[in-house]
Amino acid sequence: MKAYINKRMLNWLKHRIPPNAHHQLSSNNVFIFPSGFGFAYLTMVLVIFLLGTNYQNNIILMFSFLLASLFVTTMLFSFQNLNGMSIKLIKAPTGFAKQVSYLVIELSGQNARQYIQFHVEPAIQHSFMLTSENLNENNVKIQVPILNTRRGVHQLSRLRIRSTFPLGLFNTWTRLDLGCEHMVYPEPKLPMLWQQRQYQQELVEQGQVNTANQMGDFYQLENYQVGQSLSLVAWKQLAKSQQWLSKGHASAVTGDVWLDFQQMSAHDLEAKLSQLCALVIEYSQLQQSFGLKLPHLEIEPSSGEKHQIKCLQALASM
């Protein structure tokens, strides 16, 4: 039932507040309704009114009328706190699963605004609500935290902007669709083999491993890299010293490493993607050139930040 209502609501909202990277808040898209406290307050006003009536006390009556009109005024002020604010999408949230990423928006408007809460629906925890105290300046940039739950490229759910300022009598809110994507990369998990390799590398640094050139057209033995063809493995060395080393060609130094989906050690799709993700990050940190092979997609080896992002996006949208 609740889900049905929610669905209807979202459908209605889609017409009411269509997706847009830029929104201007006005009476068309701001909702306002008395809060629980607002209703309690009204009840109290009624009680005071009855008290005044019963005591035939005009002062108390005046007081109750004043409180009642304060209610009305507060409604207008609450609305005004959001009204006229314009929200512009600066950066769509991007990040790794189970981590926090940020939606960056820019706020502008003429009024001084206070205590406005921002969160992307659904806010699971209080810590994912961002409250800004004073938005007096124009063009304030705000980062709204989002917990990345599932990997993938999702449509970003609505951004809820809410305020109960000034007296908490009214909830003023709006639910904006910024029409952007929420890109969640897989959660990076290094494969076991890789961790072993890192251990090896430490040994290399300590000079315990002989990396001398043994064969003519190899210029050195390298640490075996996950994804490298098994034919490159220096089996002799492996048998001798249990070191995973590979016979490196001169061209392999700049390294056309292929990260292959099929070769990942994990069994299910998500885990494989997680491993690939971790490897992409590792290689990028090592500033090594690498390519990515996915079932339906192949990215040519390259390096650099842009290449990393491209690979990660590919992983996210698998």
Partner: peptide, 26 residues
């Protein structure tokens, strides 16, 4: 400011809003 803005309406209500008879022994 809030109160000042509220006052005109309050005064209006005060003079216009129907009075009830006291209904309980107080």
């Amino acid at each position: 400011k809030l109160l000042t803005v509220s006052i005109p309406l309050a005064i209006f209500l005060f003079f216009i809003f129907p009075r009830l008879q006291p209904f309980a022994a107080i």
